[in-house]
């Protein structure tokens, strides 16, 4: 098993936990470029800047679009590494008062991050 740290666009660090090791997956080398994948549903959103919580990956961003469904809502968030889609319950989105132009933090647990060479 390995915990891999990836620099995304030079200024955001992502951490991922993998079953692979540098021996089993030769692409796990320093300075080797990889793709970072995660599902929209795994993206958590908070309005607090410094939340004390065990989620390793966080990026600041600004909501640019909200698509409200009956059960779920789809947020498009502009961050310094590009647009990220987050899907959360319409209930949460309502309670938190999420709306366009708000500044938020998005968070993804490290076991949700897939690396692709």
């Amino acid at each position: 098993m390995s915990v891999v740290s990836v620099q995304v666009d030079g200024n955001v660090e992502f951490i991922s936990v993998l079953l692979d090791t540098p021996e089993s997956a030769p692409y796990l080398k320093k300075d080797r470029s990889v793709k970072v994948l995660f599902k929209e549903m795994e993206v958590a959103v908070t309005t607090q800047k410094d939340l004390d919580i065990s989620i390793e990956n966080r990026i600041a961003g600004k909501i640019v679009d909200v698509e409200k469904g009956v059960l779920l809502s789809r947020l498009t968030i502009e961050t310094k590494i590009g647009q990220i889609i987050a899907i959360l319950s319409t209930l949460s989105a309502g309670q938190m008062g999420l709306a366009e132009k708000m500044n938020v933090m998005i968070m993804v647990k490290m076991n949700e991050i897939i690396l692709a060479p």
């Binding site: 991922s16 993998l18 079953l19 692979d20 997956a25 994948l37 698509e67 409200k68 469904g69 009956v70 059960l71 779920l72 809502s73 789809r74 899907i87 897939i114 690396l115 692709a116 060479p117």
Partner: peptide
């Protein structure tokens, strides 16, 4: 083998349908 994901299968798409925003 092109991702680190280990829980993987190949298959054929049978149906695509929209549900809410997904």
């Amino acid at each position: 083998n092109k991702t680190s994901a280990k829980f993987r299968f190949s298959g054929e798409i049978l149906k695509i349908h929209r549900e809410d925003v997904l």
